[in-house]
């Protein structure tokens, strides 16, 4: 299954990057969301995937049985998902704000910080 996830992650990264490069803020945000999903998948697969029991200690036992899923990447991804969500919210409001202020969602038309110089 890791092979499949590797292909999937590549697919999602490519799609996300293509969307982010489209020059439109709305599509940029869609791409960003996809990209963060892909990143989580990469971490998950790098921690090895196995059809094992979840990382839980059974009631009455001191430690989980041998061969449970690796808990470390899970903990990483769990927070990464929430952080990613926070980042997504911020990007969304920023996009809204940019559109509001500049009246366009085309990124190449946003030149307030670096106005076009009158050269040549």
């Amino acid at each position: 299954m890791e092979t499949i996830v590797a292909v999937l992650a590549g697919l999602l990264v490519a799609g996300g990057a293509y969307l982010m490069l489209s020059g439109n803020l709305v599509r940029y945000i869609l791409g960003l969301t996809i990209l963060s999903n892909a990143a989580n998948l990469v971490i998950f697969a790098a921690g090895r995937m196995a059809k094992a029991a979840p990382a839980l200690t059974a009631y009455g036992a001191d430690a989980p049985a041998a061969g449970v899923a690796n808990p470390v990447p899970q903990a990483l991804i769990l927070t990464a998902i929430v952080i990613g969500f926070g980042l997504f919210c911020f990007a969304l409001t920023l996009a809204y704000r940019a559109f509001y202020a500049m009246g366009t969602a085309r990124m190449d038309a946003m030149r307030i910080a670096e106005p076009r110089e009158d050269r040549g």
Partner: peptide, 14 residues
């Protein structure tokens, strides 16, 4: 905040 934010007047599809 997102729900309360106004709709930009200049909104047009691009």
């Amino acid at each position: 905040a997102l729900e309360e934010a106004g709709v930009p007047e200049s909104r047009k599809d691009e």
